[in-house]
Simulated assay, not measured.
Amino acid sequence: MAERFYVNCPLRPGPVVIQGAEVHHLAVVCRFRLGDAVCLFNGDGHQYPARIEKISRDEVMLEVFAVESPARELPFRLDVAAPLPRGDRAQFLLEKLTELGVTSFTPLRTARSIIHPCKTKLGKWQRYVIEASKQCGRNVLMEVRPLLEWPAFCSRPELPPRRILAHPGGEKKSPEPLGDTVVAVGPEGGFTEEEVAQAREMGWRLLDLGPRILRVETAAIALAVLFG
């Protein structure tokens, strides 16, 4: 597979100019030269093989010569919600959910959560998603949504009908045939009984992930594997 680069603009066969951080990555880090082949994507579900035509300090001109649509997305929607863990574990979580094909991630504020990032962090999180997409070959970017309070999130009417809450004492059954699903994980201290009751009222099913205490990112990744 040719080296992949993300561009935030419409793509089609013909000339295209890229600027910004990807220029440094392409010309300085990867040391590409005129005539080299690369692969561009912009999150629209396609990828665009291209050839380098011109390299300057601030921009690279390429010629897109094809449009490809490899099937790398899940055939259904899979949304994940969880409080963000501390430090580098948040980046790890976003990268792995991207690699597993998750449709969207919503950071949660719960009664016991500690990390409550502001909207200014969205750009940083989206960069993690882009870098993971470049590596794993996804051509649709996982959506990272703004922080939401648990009561507001769990009662959203547009959520998929299958709603799974990771919680000790829940069901231990294997998942049914795959389909549109939303899964939620609590903070390190777990959901409170009041939060669990709110979820039950809104049609959420409780699922027990086993006898060991899992970190937030471990539980979220496990659910993404189970239901993806």
Results as ranks from 00 to 15, higher is better:
residue 4 R to Y: 14
residue 5 F to T: 11
residue 5 F to L: 12
residue 8 N to F: 05
residue 11 L to C: 15
residue 12 R to E: 13
residue 13 P to M: 12
residue 13 P to K: 15
residue 15 P to G: 03
residue 20 G to L: 12
residue 24 H to Y: 04
residue 26 L to P: 06
residue 33 R to H: 04
residue 35 G to C: 05
residue 40 L to F: 08
residue 42 N to P: 00
residue 44 D to K: 05
residue 44 D to E: 02
residue 49 P to R: 08
residue 53 E to C: 15
residue 55 I to L: 07
residue 61 M to E: 15
residue 64 V to Q: 07
residue 68 E to I: 01
residue 70 P to K: 04
residue 71 A to V: 06
residue 78 L to I: 03
residue 79 D to Y: 02
residue 82 A to Y: 04
residue 84 L to H: 09
residue 85 P to F: 14
residue 85 P to M: 02
residue 90 A to L: 06
residue 91 Q to S: 15
residue 91 Q to K: 14
residue 95 E to S: 06
residue 96 K to Y: 13
residue 98 T to Y: 13
residue 98 T to R: 13
residue 106 T to R: 08
residue 109 R to Q: 14
residue 114 I to M: 09
residue 118 C to Q: 14
residue 121 K to G: 03
residue 123 G to F: 01
residue 128 Y to M: 11
residue 128 Y to T: 13
residue 131 E to T: 08
residue 132 A to M: 10
residue 146 P to D: 11
residue 147 L to K: 12
residue 149 E to A: 12
residue 150 W to Y: 15
residue 151 P to Q: 12
residue 152 A to C: 07
residue 156 R to N: 09
residue 161 P to W: 11
residue 171 E to L: 14
residue 174 S to N: 08
residue 175 P to N: 09
residue 176 E to K: 13
residue 178 L to S: 04
residue 183 V to F: 05
residue 188 E to F: 11
residue 190 G to I: 00
residue 191 F to P: 00
residue 191 F to A: 03
residue 196 V to T: 08
residue 198 Q to Y: 07
residue 198 Q to T: 02
residue 209 L to K: 07
residue 211 P to V: 06
residue 215 R to L: 05
residue 219 A to N: 01
residue 221 I to Y: 03
residue 221 I to R: 01
residue 222 A to L: 11
residue 224 A to H: 07
residue 225 V to Y: 02
residue 226 L to N: 04
residue 228 G to C: 03
